[in-house]
Computed example of a mutant assay.
Amino acid sequence: MTTELEATDRRILELLSADGRMSFTDLGRATGLSTSAVHQRVKRLEQRGLILGYGATVNHDAIGLPLTAFISIRPIDPSQPDDSPERLKDLPEIESCWSVAGDESYILKIRVATPVDLEALLARVRAAANVSTRTTIVLSTPYESRPVVGGEEPARRT
């Protein structure tokens, strides 16, 4: 499903993705709209499902979770139901779960304190979902969760 957007709405999404706490007044200044007009547009973007929520960017090192890794999982028995996300939903170390095409079925983004914690989590993932795993440990993060880039509407296929 594609959603057509006016340039002003795209700009609002770009600004809010960079700073979800930006005030309606500041959004108005940046877009040339009144505060009430911006408020109405943001409310409409939320109602249309284009803004799904607002969140904080957490310093994971400072809260004791410096190790980030990606765990690719593949079912040991492909004839079993594809319910890995449901089986893994209660593991708090899993920050994100993506269904992917390729050799694996899902990729999990996880955050833990130590390699020992990662090893224990891998055992829990394997046992809970009956999967094999392949793990990639993040060494550094030059950037993450980049803001939406504005610009033109993508070209349509005809």
Rank of each mutant, 00 (worst) to 15 (best):
R126V: 00
R126H: 03
I107E: 06
P85D: 02
I94S: 13
P142C: 07
D26E: 03
R126K: 11
P147H: 10
N59F: 12
P147I: 04
S79H: 01
S145K: 14
P81V: 00
Q47C: 12
T25A: 08
P92G: 13
A30Q: 09
I73D: 05
D9L: 13
L122Q: 14
N130W: 06
R44K: 12
L5C: 03
V100Y: 10
T31N: 03
K43H: 03
V149L: 13
G55E: 15
R10F: 14
P78M: 10
Q40N: 03
D103V: 13
C97K: 10
V58S: 13
D83N: 05
I137F: 11
F70E: 04
D61Q: 07
S132N: 08
W98A: 04
P147T: 01
R156T: 07
R29V: 08
A155K: 14
H39I: 00
A37D: 01
R74M: 05
S140F: 13
V42T: 04
K109H: 05
V138S: 12
L108N: 08
V149S: 10
E95W: 13
V58G: 13
L50W: 09
E104A: 07
A123E: 14
S96Q: 13
D9T: 01
E119M: 13
F70K: 11
S34A: 13
C97Q: 04
R146G: 08
A127V: 03
D9A: 09
A56Y: 02
A30G: 09
T8V: 05
L122N: 12
L27N: 01
K43P: 00
P92V: 14
S17M: 08
E153Y: 15
A129W: 06
T2L: 15
G20H: 07
R44Q: 01
M1C: 14
Q40S: 00
I107V: 12
G49M: 09
V38S: 05
P154D: 09
T158L: 14
C97A: 01
R10L: 15
M22N: 03
S105K: 10
R156G: 07
E95K: 05
Q47I: 05
G151W: 02
R124H: 02
A37Q: 01
L65H: 04
K89N: 01
N130F: 13
S36T: 00
T8A: 15
S79K: 15
T57A: 14
R48N: 04
L108W: 14
E93W: 10
P66F: 11
A113E: 06
G102R: 12
A62E: 06
S34C: 05
V58P: 04
L33D: 04
L13G: 08
V148M: 06
I51K: 11
I137S: 12
A123P: 00
P92Y: 12
D117M: 14
S17H: 08
D90H: 03
D26R: 10
T133E: 11
Y106M: 08
P78F: 07
E46D: 01
H39S: 01
G150P: 02
R111A: 15
R111K: 14
S79P: 03
A62M: 12
P147Y: 11
R124M: 01
T8S: 07
S23L: 12
Q40C: 00
N130T: 02
I73T: 03
A129M: 04
A62N: 02
S84A: 14
R41D: 00
